[in-house]
Design a protein around this nucleic acid. Structure first.
Lengths: 226, 226
DNA sequence: TTAAATTGTAATATTTCTGTAACAAAAGAA
DNA sequence: TTCTTTTGTTACAGAAATATTACAATTTAA
């Protein structure tokens, strides 16, 4: 899982629990303790999914939700609402206001994880898929294997993550910064040119003679899988 | 799996969830929402195992349990108790009153399924798959034996559990954390490097010259059986 | 109780991977 | 063209991950 998840929730302990577990599953996670700030940070972070608490100190969950739905860039951002027990009636309102799913506290992490994956499967299938396939390339996340044309290819850890990243959004061009953010562990400082080297290594591994180049260089923009 | 499981539980949503999943695994399932009725139906149904809620509208779980233990035909019926969080103290009583295992709500279905199988393995070995087989490797859970190529292999307890773990999901790559969580007893703190040593011991035992290596190292990810 | 087996850890050896720097090549701009 | 900017390529040293070994402590079996 290489997806990004944002959490808006005022109980720090819940954030911690959820964040820790989600990161263990490979998600990149950011969070905020209140609605207004959350909205701002969220739009910078560009998550693939939002976990939104119903009751917040400033705005209500619904308000946040409406704000997001109004913004063209986030109109389709999947949202899972976190509600406390006893807010049953509100649930329907929540769903009406454009929430994709909700879960009642206290919840087990497994339950949350299952719902997140179910929602992502609809909105962004590649994030949760076990096999990422693009033309004659196949990457198996469970077995950690890569194939081109049925032939297995050996990749180092970084090249594997890099390819995984490209495969979740083939054709799309990514800047070196974007690649760094997602493919490298957080807070690691790496020369941007280093990516060029890894791109080369990846190219060398996945290219087969007489077959077309799979990674396109877009001068002054970045790279993409084609 | 072709065993029969009876559920006595007053929350219909839990019954539904569990029943659906158990049936998917091949069990035949019947259920009741309260104790008195449950007892009657159960005796007609003759299950191989009972899932019993601790708190029921009429009888308590313990009462049901005692009633069953008095009946010669069901004296040995395995029972797994479902308890809500906070009833911790009662657990001990539960086990004393002849319960085979218990699980605390909320639970994940996987957890429940694992416990059911563990209990059935003791009481009714034929219902659960007991031989794990992968290529020329065979592990007999009942007799605690391992064979490669018909030849028996001696393993220490930890190596046995480790191999058992790999065999439940061959090919899948597991991280050291995942291995620790499942193979080692809960809450035991063990250095993550320790796994390497056990992997080595396991390799040494199950490898036969001229035969391919069975355990694959996936750098920065973990190990898998191949 | 003694002997044997098992476990976890630490220390060491070995392998593989990473990031960077330096230079070459290519693509644009003027 | 010539200069400038960006990307490609290579080699390499240090880092990181894994393998191996030895050993002391503990458990189990005899």
């Amino acid at each position: 899982m290489k997806g990004k998840i944002f959490i808006i929730e005022d109980e720090a302990s819940i954030i911690q629990l959820v964040q820790l577990n989600l990161e263990k599953e490979g998600f990149v996670v950011a969070s905020s303790l209140n609605g207004n700030e959350g909205l701002k940070e969220l739009k910078k972070f560009e998550p693939n999914l939002l976990l939104l608490d119903w009751m917040l100190p400033d705005l209500s969950g619904i308000d946040v939700c409406k704000n997001i739905r109004k913004d063209n860039n986030f109109k389709n951002l999947p949202i899972i609402m976190l509600t406390a027990k006893g807010e049953e009636e509100d649930k329907i309102k929540g769903l009406e206001s454009g929430v994709d799913d909700y879960i009642t506290k206290p919840f087990s992490f497994n339950e949350l994880s299952a719902r997140i994956k179910a929602v992502l499967r609809r909105s962004d299938p590649n994030i949760v898929a076990n096999d990422l396939i693009f033309e004659d390339l196949k990457l198996d996340r469970i077995e950690k294997r890569v194939f081109r044309d049925e032939r297995e290819i050996q990749l180092g850890p970084t090249e594997f993550r890099l390819l995984e990243f490209f495969l979740t959004n083939p054709k799309r061009v990514y800047s070196r910064d974007q690649i760094l953010e997602t493919v490298w562990p957080n807070n690691v400082n790496v020369e941007s040119r280093t990516i060029d080297v890894h791109i080369r290594r990846l190219r060398q591994s996945i290219n087969i003679k007489n077959k077309k180049e799979l990674i396109r260089t877009v001068r002054s923009s970045g790279y993409s899988l084609v």
